[in-house]
Design a protein around this nucleic acid. Sequence first.
RNA 1: GCGCCCGUAGCUCAGAGGAUAGAGCGUUGGCCUCCGGAGCCAAAGGCCGCAGGUUCGAAUCCUGCCGGGCGCGCCA
Length: 609
Amino acid sequence: MRDLKAELRASVAEAVGSLGVDEPVEVVVQPTPPDKPGDFGSPVAFALARRLRRPPVDIAAELARRAPLPAGVLRAEAVGGYVNFTVDPSALLQAATEPLPPPAATGRRVLVEHTSVNPNKELHVGHLRNVALGDAVGRILAYAGHAVQVLNYIDDTGRQVAESLFALERYGLRDPGGHKYDHWVGEAYVRLHREMEDPDRRAEIEEGVRRVLHRLESGELRAEVERILRAQLDTMWRLGAEYDVLVWESDLVRAGLLQQALDLLGRTPYVLRPEAGKYAGAVVLDTSSFVQGLEDPYLVLVRSDGTATYPAKDIAFQFWKMGLLGGLGFVHFEDQPSGRPLYTSHPRGDPALGFGGCEETINVIDATQSYPQLVVRTALAIAGRPDLAERAHHLAYETVTLEGRRISGRRGHTVSVDEVLDEARRRARAIMAEKNPDHPDPDFVAEQVGVGAIRFAMVKTEPRRQIDFRWEQALSFEGDSGPYVQYAHARAASLLRRAGEAGVADEPPDFSQVTEFERPVARTLLDFPQAVADSAAQRTPHVLAQYLLDLAAVWNAYYNARSPDGTPATSVLLAPPGLRGARLALVAQVREVLRTGLGLLGVPAPDEM
RNA sequence: GCGCCCGUAGCUCAGAGGAUAGAGCGUUGGCCUCCGGAGCCAAAGGCCGCAGGUUCGAAUCCUGCCGGGCGCGCCA
């Protein structure tokens, strides 16, 4: 796809240079507003006005005269103080329908950690945002040419798993089968928390949980945890998320990474072992030189009883991710639905398998963990690697509330992801029965539309904005939604299918016949590479999601366009030969860009719905 | 108290210093004798939280204030 904006930037820069401006100026080229003449314009004359002591309008006029016109650009003119360029519609469409450039490999190793759900109960709507964001960001960065590793952290030595496993033991539960296992375990977990509200029983339960915790740390219960994990993975896969590697916390500790990290930090002047006072007997990290404004800059890494705190494990993990530590081994775990292999850390695994050691990391974790994540970056700086600290990103997303209330897994104020997906599929199926009763495979596509609606709803807004999960909104199939984009895609696919049936699919385009109606669609198509690049640079999929809504809207408007007399203006199949070929090329590119873009968001793009 | 994030149309949100601030939902009125109406067209609806500042130019950058969310454990 041709980069017209870049060509125009160069052209304006050349014109500016010919005015004898010695200092370099930044040349901005942007699309013109809908009611202004031209397709692209630059406000560069405003910035030059003072330096040249001339009014912007004069400068713009002179720049318009001096700017060399790239091929297909009809004219440059001064509009207000702007220099605007008008592109010939046929050149515009030709540029927009050139094939998308293949991703250029950057070679940069980027590790994306997301999901990382405690393996103790089923996923709920709060986890949904994490999975949707992380999976999309991983796909977008890979498309941008980075060597991406997608990692899912398994906290198998945490309190939550211990509670779930203890609950099964305490209540003598045996899996009766016929349900999803993570849900069944989750019920025991909630039951245990209800019982813990009684202070007398709480003490007794505490002791049992501690016992299970020790067994977890020794790795004895790995099979029990894995069983829950596998049930959770079914949900993640149903969402369309896949991973490259699972890292178990117990493996991290047993491989000695924690000790290595503590040794590394212990050689700096920032790690202290106070003999008296509040922190007597503990190992603490003094963050005061790196984090401003803390009341108490000391962070406990090792408790006075010798056990490590969670931040210590986090730090060790981050050090491993960025290649400061080694020693983790891996084995093949399972092939995922797409065929992509999934590996897992393992006590007897192969360390040569090449995970970790990335120069950039993205931790997809909710915003309540911003402080611990800051500590992790600080630890990198303390270890003498401020360069790595700068490339250790926290993709902090705000929490999801449920119908205005805080989600609570313990109290059971949640909706499971499985339940949400089932309901989304049900609604999609009902709409299909009404609108497309002859669909060849309605159940399969209803699932795709349901997943698409949910995933799109999770990534269309900025991550740092708090969102409220409401059924009516998340499962909307109209307007600002995933199905709206999917529909636009299906419509393009349908048109191309009919062109094939009519035997005109390969008709050569005659771009000289192109009309003004094609212009807005072509302009929007040309924005796609920039939208992906922005999404990757900002590490957020919402930029791309918003772009896809724009493209779908401009394409739908084109599809329905009418001439002033009210007759359809943009017929494709009934257009004269040549024009028909050009329009088919446009439709094919719309379909391609929508399909590619949706794919980067992990949203399926069915050809018929 | 200190720190981080948010405040844009009735509601939910886009707008990374540039042109008269844009969508969706909702409201009102239109469009299926062409290829998919999950669509399209039009109307109404805005002191961009408030007050200063920087700039040729501010929703966007800076400062202060107001309102909301979150965080500040030898919990994870």
